[in-house]
Amino acid sequence: MEILMSIVVGVLFMTATYLMLSKSLLRIIVGTGLLSHGAHLLILTMGGLKRGAAPLLGENAESYTDPLPQALILTAIVISFGVTAFFLVLAYRAYKELGTDNIEQMRGTESNE
């Protein structure tokens, strides 16, 4: 199971890298979304995918799944959610101000613009 998940995560990273190297800003943001999906699935996989009850003590099971990676993922999800929301608004604002969503046209280093 872990091997299958690793391959899936690898495909997600591959797609994310490909999208982030493209010119359109929206494709880049989709890429960051896929990257964070991959990272979160990787935490889950790396914590081990052994069978066990959901981490609720009311289940009275003999073994439970590891609760720590789940807490880490939950934290990472809300953080990347916040950052993605900010990034999308930034992209919207940049589109209105700069009039382009092509990252190639966002060049220039002059500070006095």
């Binding site: 960051t32 990272a39 979160h40 990787l42 935490i43 996989t45």
Partner: peptide, 15 residues
């Protein structure tokens, strides 16, 4: 964003 994702990945490996 990319380096943060890498950080999460690295922590997952280490864990």
């Amino acid at each position: 964003v990319i380096s943060s994702a890498l950080f999460v990945i690295t922590v997952a490996y280490l864990y």
